[in-house]
Design a protein around this nucleic acid. Structure first.
Lengths: 344, 344
DNA sequence: TTGAAAGCGCTAACAA
DNA sequence: TTGTTAGCGCTTTCAA
């Protein structure tokens, strides 16, 4: 009894042709008589034949499977990117296998099992510079870096224009007369943290703000970390009238901490986020933020990767997607009463 | 030039054994002399050999790839389930390919391309009853339904105990003296919507509440839909002192709508959610909710599926995970001033 | 314990 | 236009 129900040879037998002719029909080759094609198609239908993709992969040396490694699969940014990449991949006849690679170790392991063992044709890596994972990147394999600004010589990259996003956020606060801005950053090891910070610094510099008026607290993107960082900020004694959070979740944590401290947003402190997650417009107060569309990043990443898989010699590309300010109600004009707490 | 850098035969040649012996070493068979094994291992290292997984899949008739179809990959519940399933799969030597199947059509297409073409060994389907997708389920293929209560004869199922969750939510509100409860439901076509509703009705019945005191508005799980449904509720003229939302996002939308209408939560209206998303504790007011852990559902689903893949005749299992009430600040004792608006 | 032969289901190259 | 012959890289008999 055959392992797979029906093979190409069964179809060939029924249609009275060679299995090769069946293969031609399946693959849409021209050189087949319409009549033969008909017969083969009928046989395929009658038998309920389905090509075995593993066998095709084997014979062709390509799997039409793309891998996508990201720190996790749950956070809105990552999940959106993955869905974007998956849609584009499927549209182009590929599948996307997404895996969470929270650390360098796991990353290396996945590269081994998915790329070196030839299960996948190519690889999208999200945030490869958040630790040493870029060092574990396989050579000579089609790959795309997402969330990366530093142009690489070998790999295509696609990212949000984080620096510009940071600049726009700062500029918005500056335009509301805020001068003492506290920034809640992501892990400083991550490139996008540094980019957003650089954009902020640029805007501050351009506006002639004194650098000693600003202060950074490092979080890990989670709402908890934003909450804790804000508590520390409040205890630190730093003066500030605005918080620039590098993502919406930390911004929400910040607002929560401020509220617990009896401070009102935006009357006492303005808060701006980053991402524009679906909930941003519905929290209290609705969050002013910088919108990025990770879904688009994923789509572009998959497109770039497929291009490279199918055309390995194509010139390397580096793309940047625009950031956009979304003004809601968590930011307001500076009221000349910046928060000042005594250091404990 | 060989398509794959190094094959089992290259290793065999270098080690001076047959390729079959190399295969035995790779697969950890017993019947190999330690000495031979050593030689082969050295050759593998020297050549940087990696088994080609496609060829293994081909020869073995199994791919060690699992598929997971869910309505989308982005929503917290789905993304968590996927990550849970992915972790469990990898732990057991499988990979998980997750794909979004928002409609029956896409679902059927994915079944065709992933299952019938034998790319995947088995299939996890999340919410198969949200439309007709369960009718497109392949027969005779290892599969698991997640988020399903109706025991099937053929497939393993794993779900949150939604009915109990609904009951607990209602009971909490009842214990706070609320009697007029408005429920914001998910799509009524979905099984978990109906289960949570049934739990609610049971609790209400047990407490002797009049059924005409409760009212349902249907949403689609999105924060927007919760917002709109609540606006409609307010305009409808129904009296209510509490809103029981079937997920946290709709609860957040509801709170937003109430706030816009000048109502305070929980002083004027109590709101309870469902899920306990990470942001639930940080919104204003912190959300009372029913916790479920979709990550665990995913883990169990993957475990069940792998068991079935490896042991097709094992008895069918139907599992239910417990729901838990998390009390925060969005619910309070009934203040004897239920909202009453005139119908427009 | 090891090796030789056959085949997994398909595509590619060549021949007819 | 169609068929034949070889593989793709591995595992699984079966012999030795």
């Amino acid at each position: 009894m055959p392992r797979s129900r029906v093979t190409i040879r069964d179809v060939a037998a029924l249609a009275g042709v060679s299995h090769q002719t069946v293969s031609r029909v399946i693959n849409g080759h021209e050189r087949v008589t319409p009549e033969t094609r008909q017969r083969v198609m009928r046989a395929i239908d009658d038998l309920g034949y389905r090509p075995n993709e593993v066998a095709r992969s084997m014979a062709q040396g390509r799997t039409r499977l793309l891998a996508c490694f990201s720190p996790n699969l749950i956070d809105y940014t990552f999940a959106s990117l993955i869905e974007g990449a998956e849609q584009m991949a499927r549209q182009q006849g590929y599948f996307l296998l997404s895996a969470s690679a929270p650390d360098e170790e796991t990353f290396a392991c996945l590269v081994e099992e998915l790329i070196h063992s030839r299960r996948a044709d190519g690889l999208i890596v999200f945030n490869p510079y958040s630790d040493g994972r870029y060092t574990r990147m396989p050579k000579g394999v089609p790959g795309v870096y997402a969330g990366v600004h530093t142009p690489t010589e070998e790999l295509d990259t696609i990212s949000l224009d984080d620096k510009e996003g940071g600049r726009i956020a700062a500029q918005h606060l500056l335009s509301l007369d805020h001068r003492r801005i506290a920034c809640l950053t992501g892990p400083i090891t991550e490139e996008c943290t540094r980019e957003r910070l650089a954009g902020l610094a640029n805007a501050l510099g351009d506006a002639g703000a004194r650098s000693e008026d600003s202060v950074n607290f490092e979080g890990d993107w989670s709402v908890e970390s934003g909450y804790r960082a804000t508590q520390m900020l409040l205890r630190s004694g730093h003066e500030f009238s605005a918080i620039c959070a590098q993502n919406d979740r930390m911004a929400i944590g910040a607002i929560h901490a401020l509220r617990e401290a009896g401070l009102h947003v935006p009357q006492d402190v303005s808060v701006i986020g980053f991402d524009d997650i679906p909930l941003a417009a519905y929290i209290n107060p609705p969050l002013t933020t910088i919108r990025q569309v990770p879904y688009d990043i994923g789509q572009v990443a998959a497109r770039l990767l497929i291009e490279r898989v199918e055309q390995p010699t194509r010139a390397v590309q580096h793309l940047l997607l625009p950031a956009k300010l979304i003004v809601r109600e968590s930011t307001a004009v500076y009221q000349h009463r910046a928060v000042k707490n005594e250091p404990r």
